[in-house]
Design a binder for these strands. Structure first.
Length: 280
RNA sequence: CAGUGAUGAC
């Protein structure tokens, strides 16, 4: 059972749905009883591949086997419906979870917060965060990253910075995503120095900046009208051994175009093409 | 006690 469950997880992650289904059938044919984890992995895989019907079939099978969904099952389901564009159904699953006397965990709250966020309803997302705190559920790094981004996107730069501090004081260690979110919101709030300080603290904390972190800074300097700094960070990104992403090139080209540096912009565009990337 | 779910730039 363990081996099959692991295989199903790997195949599902690799989007090998046919093989995964075959594995599952083989497992049952061998007389092995799937565990809740097996079902959860199947659910996750079907969700990632937008196979809602199959996902619902897994739910039915799980219940037919006499099992009760656990927190992971609910979390997976909420996210699955949300990403399939069925936000109302995601909310319904969250309520069903409570009706089943399962106290939602930080994941369930955060997943649903992100569902509201995708729906373009940041207010409800934050209301849910407050409810989470009221219920005594401790926010984890995902919750904090989400809340910080919500405030950042709403232009509440200072508040986002306060929450960033709060998170650290509670012993939640910021990761690369926290830092790139902070860099982005500082940049968009015009706090360029703070953004650069964030980038430095990230490295000082032992994190290796990824393409997103670099592109965010490149984009910031482009918008700020400083193409030279943008180009500097682009070069540093290359020197760090990273393959620039399309958004990184876009940010660099934007920086040059904004400063009327057409030759440089064209050069960046040609490099992008030579790298075999598809311009967007 | 425990394998499976969520977050960032364009």
């Amino acid at each position: 059972v363990f081996v099959y469950t692991t295989l199903i997880g790997v195949l599902g992650g690799a989007r090998e749905m046919t093989l995964m289904g075959a594995m599952y059938e083989e497992m049952k044919a061998a007389g092995l009883k799937p565990t809740l984890v097996t079902f959860n992995r199947l659910l996750y895989a079907y969700g990632r591949n937008n196979m809602l019907e199959e996902a619902l079939a897994v739910c039915a099978e799980l219940r037919a086997a006499g099992m009760a969904p656990d927190r992971v099952t609910y979390g997976t389901l909420i996210d699955l419906f949300s990403k399939a564009g069925q936000h109302e159904r995601a909310v319904a699953v969250f309520e069903e979870m409570q009706a089943a006397h399962l106290q939602p965990d930080a994941v369930a709250y955060t997943v649903l917060m992100n569902s509201y966020k995708r729906m373009g309803d940041p207010h409800k997302a934050l209301a849910l965060y407050r409810r989470m705190l009221d219920e005594g559920c401790e926010p984890n790094i995902f919750s904090y990253n989400t809340v910080i981004d919500l405030h950042g996107k709403a232009g509440r730069t200072r508040l986002a910075m306060t929450i960033f501090q709060e998170m650290r004081s509670k012993g939640v260690v910021p990761d690369v995503m926290t830092y790139s979110t902070m860099i982005d919101l500082c940049g968009k709030g015009g706090l360029y120095d703070a953004a650069e300080e964030m980038f430095e603290s990230m490295q000082a904390a032992g994190h290796v900046p990824d393409t997103v972190a670099w592109s965010t800074l490149i984009q910031m300097w482009g918008r700020a009208g400083d193409p030279h700094r943008a180009a500097l960070y682009f070069r540093r990104m290359l020197r760090a051994g990273l393959t620039p992403s399309v958004p990184a090139y876009n940010a660099l080209m934007f920086a040059f175009l904004r400063a009327d540096m057409f030759v440089e912009a064209k050069a960046a565009f040609d490099t992008l093409r030579r790298a075999g990337q598809a311009p967007s």
